[in-house]
Design a protein around this nucleic acid. Sequence first.
DNA 1: AAGATATTTCAGAATTTACCGAAAGCAGGA
DNA 2: TCCTGCTTTCGGTAAATTCTGAAATATCTT
Lengths: 185, 185
Amino acid sequence: MELSPVMESFVLHWGEMGSRWGLNRTVAQIFALLYIAGRPLPADEIADTLKVARSNVSTSIRELQSWELIERTHAIGDRRDHFVAETDLWTMAARIAEERKKREIDPTLAALARCLSDARMDDGIGKDAVARIRAMHDFLESASGWYEEIRDLPQSKLETLMKMGAKVARLEAPGKKPKKKKGKR
Amino acid sequence: MELSPVMESFVLHWGEMGSRWGLNRTVAQIFALLYIAGRPLPADEIADTLKVARSNVSTSIRELQSWELIERTHAIGDRRDHFVAETDLWTMAARIAEERKKREIDPTLAALARCLSDARMDDGIGKDAVARIRAMHDFLESASGWYEEIRDLPQSKLETLMKMGAKVARLEAPGKKPKKKKGKR
DNA sequence: AAGATATTTCAGAATTTACCGAAAGCAGGA
DNA sequence: TCCTGCTTTCGGTAAATTCTGAAATATCTT
């Protein structure tokens, strides 16, 4: 596939950003390419376009599938696997949130719980230190619980909720109480 | 500083997790140590405790300061700098969110905007591809705007908002309409 | 101002991570 | 069952990142 200048810079930017996100450059670039292509691409075409080894594409695609950000499809008369990116952005965001939680939050929560239960046998640790571990554990757990509650809301509900957020924010903003209801900052 | 077994595993776990978070191991460990210590520690004591080079501590501390997760303090009669971790978890979360947005979202948004403006001069890119870039840009921008609206809410307001979220979630949950108000799933 | 103590910078060493290309594995014909 | 086209696995290498120790810098003390 031939990349126009803008498409190329889109892909390159995603590559750089991907690193900051825990993905590696190639993985991120492949996703960007599929997203911008807007149609299923076979692995070897991806490799050609991005100038990376075919095997590298294979590995990266597996990673993208574990994030559920791309899907395998087929074309008639073509034995090769093709891949398409998820294009709905709400879905993308949800998938990313889910996966990051799974990789970042859940293991941490488990480790903290382990620390707390071990703390009983550990006479070298102070009460206040245990309390701080517990505080962190409880905080993460409640954030996690909240996320789970809203995770399955349909998009429309989420949008409602976000609007509510904005409203709450506006309502008696810190330091400047509106005197009249007409006063819309 | 002597680490008890639980304290040590807390620190080690943070080290591992930090990697998944874009921090490196040492940076994360130092933060964990300061958090669990609950009192200001001088840099050389940190180095001793974690068995890393003094210079490494210096670099890592700078990184933690850029996240505003630790603060430099002083003790009378001691010329050395001491460091304490932020212990309020809401504040911590806010700082992390702010910094991640700054590092992950803002540059991406800027790059997308650049792509969009460049797209005019690029006759190699299809209309639909431009539309997808725009969709991503707009999505990120509105998420970003929402974040900015709630970012400065006091903790109490945020908690209210989270409760609202839970309520919206419960209210006519997808696939199971409650018939009576008593029915609390 | 010189000496003592504390911090930062930096070049190279060590470690970790990403990538390539060759070989192996797996279908679906002939 | 033996090609043939496609995909995955894997050992080694290249690249990037992290860490160290020595040297430079800064700051107090006398």
